Structure formats: structure tokens, C-alpha cells
Computed example of a mutant assay.
Amino acid sequence: MADPAQVPGEGDDEASRPYRPGYELVAEQLLNYIAEQNLRSGDRLPTEQGLAQILGASRNVTREAVKVLAAIGRLSVRRGAGIFVADAAGGLVDDQLSHFRPTSMEDVLMLLDYRTVIESETARRAASLATPIEVRTIREGAETSLVAAGEDDGYAFAKADAAFHDAVGAASHNVFLRSSVAGVRRLASQSDVLLFHGDAPGSLEVAARQHLAIAEAVAAGEADLASELMVEHIATTQSQFERKIRDRLFNLDDRGASGSPPRTSRNTGAGDPPLSPETSAS
């Protein structure tokens, strides 16, 4: 395995490398190990000590990496039984998705491309099929997200964002489309936690106003417009995500060199856990 102290893709100049927490690098290496060994849902992993030896990391940092991966649903830690590969994200039945790499730009871009395909269609169908109650629910999610954005409350925004996208999925009147939207967002939340520690990758207000525009197109029954606006929404998310990734990988961070996870940002509320897969921001 690669040295977990080395940032993938960076040169050998120590001063040129941005800081990344040790647990984050080991988590990334552990996901690569699972893929290399072709491990599937339910397969048992070595002990923490065994993983530390395989990955060339300390046991404490390995333990933190395991905790983070368990928190985002990639591992299952069973007291007295061991560490296991967790079930694949609900709604996405291909077992290959258990090898999704949330810190890989290639994997994330493929995920966003899939989101564009799925969610543009759910928006189109919602504009054609939504009942008055469903239209109201979509609007409420959009309006709540705008209020949260105005208050700079990332945790409240993430919940409203999830409610909005789920409401659009429900209004498509296709359980498979709705389930696919939920599954994609669960995977996207893994990148939020590992790379951004629960923070949204871009402007909350921009995303919220796009929610409102989509909601109005759905309410007006403008299927093509609703689909186009959803494509634009996800494209904005992608550009913000890429910019945040570049900032993270190529700018020196002023945080300390501790291998422990950072404290939860104020946007998620003091003491709150990282955003769950169901509450990932756009």
C-alpha cells in the first residue's frame, strides 16, 4: 500500500504538500485495500492491529479511520465479532458500488454524471405528474433551504436540501427513480464527510435559489424547464465541488498535524455528528 503520509498525486517536495489528517489518508488507503482485495458486503476485515500493519499506520490513527468509515456506512464494526464491509448504499444494487472511492475525483465526477441523468428525469416527471400536495412539499423544502442558507445554518440546510430532492423524487411517481436519488446522495455524503467534514462544498444561497426555481417550474407544469434547471443545479454543485477539491489539495492548510478528526464545524451545530447520508447537502 502507498505511504499514508503521502498525498496522492503530489510530488516529493514536503513543503509543497497540503496537510491532510492522518485518519483521512488511512481511510482512503483502507477503501483502496477493500477494492484491491475485491471484498464484498459482509466480508470480514483484519483486526485494527492487522489493518495498521497492512496500511503502515499507527493503531490509533487506524482506529479513527475505521470509526469514520463506519460512520459513513462503509464499514460495520460488531463488538466481539470484528470489522466487516458494510452493505452497499440502498437503492444502488450493483455490488461494485461498495468500492466507490469518495476521495477520488474520477469516482465523484461519475457519480455527479449519474445524478444528472437520474435527477433531471425525476424533475421532468415531477413537473408532469406532481399532485398539489407534492408541489407544496417541494416548495416547502426549497423555501426552508433558503431560510437556512440565509442563517448560514449548514445542518438545517442539509436537512431541507434532502427533503427537497426526496420530494422531487417522490413526485416522479417512480419508486426506482426515487430510490436511485436517495442512493446517489448517500454516496455523495461520504465525500462530504471525508473531504469537507460535513460542510457543503459551495454556496448555500445559490443552491437554495436553484431549488426555488425548480420548484416553480414543477408547480407550473413546465417539464422541460424543470429538467434543464435540475441539470444546471447539479452542474453548479459539480463546479463548486471541483473548486473546493482543488483548494483542499493544492493550498496549504493552517490546521495542526494531529491525526485525530477535526471538531464538527459550527454549521452543523455544536456537538452534532457529521451529516448523515440522508442529510447530505447538494
Rank of each mutant, 00 (worst) to 15 (best):
R20P: 00
R248S: 14
R78T: 14
A35M: 10
E10A: 13
L109P: 00
A5Q: 12
P274M: 11
G91S: 10
A220E: 15
R74P: 01
P8L: 13
E36A: 15
F196G: 04
R186F: 12
T62A: 04
L55V: 06
R125K: 14
A213N: 06
Y23V: 05
D161G: 01
P102H: 11
P201T: 07
V93T: 10
D254C: 04
L212E: 11
S76W: 04
P4I: 13
N38W: 02
A88D: 08
S172Y: 06
V61W: 01
R63M: 09
D95L: 14
R178E: 15
R17A: 12
F157Q: 05
P102G: 12
A126H: 06
S227H: 04
A35C: 09
S172G: 11
L177A: 07
A15W: 09
V68E: 12
G259D: 15
S258C: 02
D3E: 08
P132T: 03
K159C: 06
H197C: 03
A126Y: 03
P262V: 05
L109N: 07
G256H: 07
A208I: 06
A71Q: 09
Y33R: 02
P18C: 11
A149Q: 07
G11I: 10
I34A: 01
H233A: 08
H211K: 08
L69V: 05
Q53K: 08
T264N: 10
R139N: 11
V85F: 13
H211Y: 11
R79S: 14
M230D: 06
L212M: 09
A81Q: 15
R266P: 01
Q240Y: 09
R139T: 05
D12Q: 07
Q238W: 00
I34W: 01
G183V: 09
R115I: 01
S41D: 13
A226Y: 08
P8H: 11
S98T: 15
R115V: 01
E119L: 12
A88T: 12
P21N: 02
L229N: 01
G154D: 05
Q190M: 14
E119C: 07
R246Q: 09
S258H: 00
A65L: 04
A182H: 11
L75A: 04
S276Y: 05
A217Y: 05
V117W: 10
V135T: 11
P277N: 06
V61K: 02
L112H: 10
S189K: 09
L225G: 00
P4R: 09
E222C: 03
A86S: 14
R44L: 08
A27Q: 06
D199V: 07
R248P: 01
R40P: 00
P8A: 06
L30Y: 00
R248E: 13
L51K: 01
E64F: 15
R74C: 06
P262T: 02
V147S: 09
A160K: 00
L129K: 12
S104M: 10
V206E: 04
G221C: 09
S145C: 12
S41A: 15
L146I: 13
A170E: 13
A226H: 06
G256P: 04
R263G: 15
Q49F: 08
S16A: 15
A171V: 08
A149M: 10
A281H: 11
A89L: 08
A223Y: 03
D113M: 05
R255T: 12
D107R: 02
G221W: 12
V93G: 03
L249A: 08
G82L: 15
L194G: 00
P102C: 13
A220W: 05
S128G: 14
V231Y: 06
M110G: 06
E64V: 00
